[in-house]
Design a protein around this nucleic acid. Sequence first.
DNA 1: CCTTGACATGTAAGAAACGACATGTATTTT
DNA 2: AAAATACATGTCGTTTCTTACATGTCAAGG
Lengths: 167, 167
Amino acid sequence: MSLPHAVLGLLAVAPGTGYDLTRRFEASLSHAWHASHSQIYPELARLQGRGLVQEAGRGARGSRTWAITDQGLAELDRWLVEVQPNRSQRNETALRWFLLPLLPADQRRSALEREIADMLDSTAYLEAAAAGSGEVADDHPFRATAKLGVRINDVMLAWLREQLADT
Amino acid sequence: MSLPHAVLGLLAVAPGTGYDLTRRFEASLSHAWHASHSQIYPELARLQGRGLVQEAGRGARGSRTWAITDQGLAELDRWLVEVQPNRSQRNETALRWFLLPLLPADQRRSALEREIADMLDSTAYLEAAAAGSGEVADDHPFRATAKLGVRINDVMLAWLREQLADT
DNA sequence: CCTTGACATGTAAGAAACGACATGTATTTT
DNA sequence: AAAATACATGTCGTTTCTTACATGTCAAGG
């Protein structure tokens, strides 16, 4: 169960509201861990109960800004360093690519074309992130990861095009 | 919910028992979709109820061999071609890599070293699969996907080493 | 002969996640 | 001024997943 550590990680970069975290999950973590607001709000309450986050102020529209505590930072470090990683994954795209060879050639081609189109969208998005567009500029700690994403996408795109050529 | 289609996909390659499918999930699908036997047995029963798989014989130790039906193949194709892919993921490794920049340098280095070691193991495994070791030899439909896995691992390994050098 | 390990199938309780419901405020656009 | 959109927080029923429990067979090695 990685949700609490994903939330702690995002709050370690900057404090934020539940709403804000929901968007950051979509924007930065979408290729790693998915969570919706209906998970995030209860998780913030649990983390507060454990003393790992605290309210750092209230704003307009009843918003509550959360910040990670020292205990929370310690827990995040402990998890990253000491806890045995769970390498199991759930990635529907990977499953689909795996099963693609089972399709007849014409259907396989159109499926591959859809995947290529989606991959181009994804790459455009990641390249913007890797360039640091708009965001916190150069101190942005996740720049390197976005660059990795771009490289992986390049490899995947080349593979998809090979598959299409071979079909 | 991709579990039923993952099971159908594996049965489309070759019939098998629940136990056998459990191992094939670990061996072939571990980088795409995780499922344990306690999910697989009930899922086979549900798929049978929908007419998508059928019992293809019984063997020693009370084993039941399952095969995909024509209806099952049709459903699998339909899902691959018509159903809108769900691009959300859950990948703890990706989450960890994403959060790595938050660690102090010395801890980050040791975490990176562990990741590199695990990546080497994974690559060795995938290279064997891509070469078609032991398995169904050249008609093995998932060879191409294993090759993609190897290429992605190469990119990830290079990135990890860069990160380590930069830390 | 006995033990260990791989083969083999299930169930059940609890945790996690999803999708829909529910409500309200502030800002921007028409 | 009104409407639409973005901001904002929550809950609830259902589905899905995990972990542990439970049981039994067959083959190989000591």
